[in-house]
């Protein structure tokens, strides 16, 4: 059990770190009337954060560079919220390990 517990802890830290990394990317594309503080796990990129759909493409490119992963068209289609994005990023990183 202690081993499992440790593994869980590492994963949590990873997620927090990735969330911060993603937030740094996303905040560059926020319209002037949306504040960084409004970003949460549940935020929908276009509906809640009001990110222009054209700029979502730029978010994806920045995510690829930041996490050194390649996102397919299907991955992009599934990235509606911050949580979706983190799940997809997590999946990509784990599959390349």
């Amino acid at each position: 059990m202690p081993v499992l517990f440790l593994k869980h802890l590492v994963k949590e830290t990873d997620m927090t770190e990735r969330y911060e990394q993603l937030k740094t990317i996303v905040q560059q594309y926020l319209p002037d009337d949306v504040d960084v503080a409004q970003i949460s796990m549940e935020s929908n990129f276009t509906e809640d954060l009001n990110i222009n759909s054209a700029n979502l493409v730029d978010v994806v490119l920045d995510v690829e560079d930041e996490f050194d992963i390649l996102l397919e068209n299907e991955d992009m289609d599934g990235m509606k919220t911050v949580k979706d994005a983190l799940r997809i990023i997590d999946g990509k990183i784990n599959s390349t390990k």
């Binding site: 054209a54 700029n55 493409v57 730029d58 490119l61």
Partner: peptide, 9 residues
């Protein structure tokens, strides 16, 4: 796919 949105704009 790496062009980004600014190219057209």
């Amino acid at each position: 796919r790496r062009l980004g949105s600014g190219t057209v704009m």
